[in-house]
Design a protein around this nucleic acid. Structure first.
Lengths: 241, 241
DNA sequence: ACTTTTTTCGTCAAAAAAACGTATTTTGTA
DNA sequence: TACAAAATACGTTTTTTTGACGAAAAAAGT
């Protein structure tokens, strides 16, 4: 939450709140990214009180004429330069004492991006960095809780919808996919069982190419077959990873 | 699809289609209802060509200034008198020859209602009737396919979301719930296993009352605990019937 | 030659799901 | 009053699915 210019509930025609009791509305974004086999989180160092110097999620106040979800998209665009990415509302955090400086409600959103897609310079120019989930430092305010909740929602989502595949390039290998799911579930999976499971879903198309960046032997590339996926869903198939 | 007044793509500034090649847009509603232990479907006898006299789904053209989903709500309201009920888009049917009379695309929606809630007279005055799924007659056009697709979507939905509970009165018995799921899945379930399964979800609250309408002994009434359900979801619990 | 990782083809035990058994409770009905 | 019918409890058995693991061939970099 950058404490920039926005002030909410400060309409002179609406004196429901006393002047020192303004209710601010903000949005914070839990930005997940997948890179080099790790699930990472985009955080930045706060430059304002409270908790200046502490790591926190990226966020912003919601403008008076702005939709909450648009605010989240705006933040994301400002920091990563990316538009049209997977972004979903997580939940609202409204405890009166969650921000010691202000009475501020925050609507958290979580996003999923392919790290190789974004504008790295833009991210750095905002003092933002990618942290591996495992190595995450303590975050400001209730942002730790926000991350935990978003991860929980992400897991639920990834289990029945192929959003995981959207985080990978169009062509990917099974070991890459496995690493991604290991990141999402934060536990190791058996390569043999994972291969069995994912191939049994019958939504992967094996290509004739290999990717040799990850190993000496190289692994076959696959692509996700969205049409097949739709067909299976409509026929009542239970997609579950 | 009442052949009333709507004409789509007939804008004089837009002569993309020749006059006899208008593209109509309609919506058809697959209305499921639960009553007397059976899952039923609301259909009515067509009064217009083609297929006059044949059973079909209820539907209407989408007005030029009307959202497709609003059109579905309007149809539902007209026929059943009910507002604010579970209604979801199923899919669009756009084959050029699906309606021999017109080039007409239809966006199907499916709804779920408790039959004891609706205005029975209103339904009858429109020539509409409730048919048990098993006894369904052949329907007009591609409406059989629409029903099959909607049922498939309903099953998928009911498996992971407690929409089934919304079809029952606030207080219901486990045998009632079982009958409902038997209707949705169109197969018999074992009463002992079903009871075990549904109670293990820990979202039912047993009440001190019994319902004796369904049997001599009577069955205990339960209510669904929405708060508990939300809590479980947020803690990562996998709700699945 | 050695190592590493992908990949295939297995096994085995644990866990979960589905099918089935039996008995008791309750009460309307014959 | 005996009986039937459904709800309910408390099982067992069978089947299916899952997870953990073994062995080894393939491919290619070091």
């Amino acid at each position: 939450m950058a404490l920039s210019s926005a002030s909410i509930a400060n309409n002179s025609n609406n004196d429901f709140y006393a002047d020192h009791e303004k209710l601010y509305v903000a949005t914070d974004c839990i930005v997940f990214g997948f890179d080099e086999g790790d699930l990472k989180l985009l955080i930045f160092k706060r430059r304002v009180e409270p908790d200046s110097g502490i790591w926190s999620l990226i966020g912003s106040f919601v403008q008076l004429d702005e939709d909450v979800n648009d605010a989240a998209r705006r933040v994301l665009k400002e920091i990563t330069g990316l538009d049209e990415i997977f972004l979903e509302q997580s939940k609202a955090y409204g405890k009166t004492d969650r921000d010691p400086g202000y009475r501020c409600l925050s609507v958290a959103h979580y996003a999923l991006i392919r790290i190789d897609d974004y504008d790295k310079e833009l991210v750095e120019s905002h003092g933002a960095y990618w942290y591996t989930l495992k190595d995450l430092p303590k975050l400001a305010l209730d942002h730790d809780q926000m991350v935990a909740d978003a991860l929980s929602k992400l897991r639920r989502k990834a289990r029945h919808q192929p959003i995981g595949f959207e985080l990978l390039p169009e062509k990917f290998t099974i070991p890459q996919l496995q690493q991604l799911y290991e990141g999402i579930y934060q536990r190791e999976l058996d390569p043999r069982n994972f291969r069995k499971k994912v191939l049994s879903l019958k939504v992967l198309v094996k290509l004739d190419e290999k990717d040799k960046s990850g190993s000496k032997r190289g692994a076959f590339l696959y692509r996700f077959d969205f049409e097949k996926y739709q067909e299976l869903l409509e026929s009542g198939y239970n997609f579950e990873i």
